[in-house]
Computed example of a mutant assay.
Amino acid sequence: MEITNEMVAKLAHLSKLKFDEAAAEKIKVDLQNMVGFIEKMNEVNTDNVTPLLHMTDAVNVMRNDVLQGSISNEAALHNAAQSKAPYFVVPKVIKK
């Protein structure tokens, strides 16, 4: 697959990036190297290779539930910018 200037411009537009011609040319070369690497990997014979589903044989390894202490509401609200016991007060960010 050949990477064109139009492809680089489209990718820049989609990712909302702006760069000069020199940077665009460097990105074009880098993208071409990446595509070449992927094409090279497609040449590898994987007929007798089973798909790898997990990196290890461990399944659902979870930590034990351990009851631990917690802090009081007063201590939690101590450094809050605004509070109305027992809650934190935050600015409204959703407008109707």
Rank of each mutant, 00 (worst) to 15 (best):
68 Q>M: 12
83 S>P: 02
45 N>F: 05
9 A>T: 10
67 L>T: 12
70 S>Y: 13
15 S>C: 08
45 N>P: 02
26 K>F: 13
89 V>T: 15
85 A>F: 11
64 N>T: 10
94 I>L: 11
61 V>Y: 06
57 D>G: 13
46 T>G: 04
19 F>S: 02
35 V>S: 06
9 A>S: 10
88 F>Q: 09
73 N>Q: 12
81 A>E: 13
3 I>D: 00
92 K>Y: 10
79 N>L: 15
13 H>I: 06
90 V>D: 04
42 N>L: 11
80 A>G: 05
48 N>H: 08
43 E>V: 07
61 V>L: 09
16 K>I: 08
91 P>K: 10
35 V>T: 12
10 K>L: 08
26 K>I: 14
94 I>P: 00
38 I>C: 06
43 E>M: 13
72 S>I: 00
94 I>C: 09
46 T>V: 12
49 V>Y: 01
27 I>D: 04
17 L>H: 03
67 L>D: 03
65 D>M: 13
28 K>I: 02
66 V>W: 01
15 S>W: 09
81 A>D: 14
91 P>E: 12
8 V>R: 00
84 K>H: 11
86 P>M: 06
9 A>K: 09
45 N>T: 12
8 V>T: 00
19 F>H: 02
44 V>N: 10
96 K>Q: 10
4 T>E: 01
84 K>E: 10
7 M>F: 07
2 E>A: 09
66 V>Y: 04
76 A>N: 04
7 M>G: 02
32 Q>L: 10
63 R>Q: 10
95 K>I: 02
23 A>V: 11
2 E>K: 15
56 T>V: 03
75 A>Y: 09
62 M>S: 00
69 G>S: 06
4 T>L: 01
63 R>A: 11
11 L>E: 03
48 N>T: 11
55 M>L: 15
8 V>Y: 00
37 F>Q: 03
31 L>I: 09
12 A>L: 04
36 G>K: 11
62 M>G: 00
30 D>M: 13
85 A>M: 11
53 L>Y: 07
80 A>S: 12
93 V>G: 15
62 M>K: 05
57 D>R: 14
58 A>I: 12
41 M>P: 01
65 D>L: 14
13 H>C: 04
22 A>E: 15
81 A>K: 15
75 A>E: 14
3 I>H: 00
50 T>K: 13
96 K>Y: 08
52 L>N: 03
35 V>G: 04
45 N>I: 06
83 S>Q: 04
20 D>V: 10
45 N>H: 11
13 H>P: 00
39 E>T: 06
22 A>W: 08
49 V>N: 02
51 P>F: 15
7 M>Q: 07
48 N>R: 07
7 M>T: 05
51 P>R: 15
43 E>F: 05
16 K>P: 00
27 I>R: 03
16 K>G: 01
38 I>S: 02
60 N>K: 05
22 A>S: 14
93 V>M: 15
14 L>A: 08
56 T>K: 09
83 S>G: 03
3 I>N: 00
80 A>Q: 11
55 M>N: 13
69 G>F: 01
76 A>W: 06
41 M>I: 10
33 N>T: 12
89 V>G: 05
42 N>W: 09
42 N>V: 05
44 V>G: 03
10 K>V: 08
33 N>R: 11
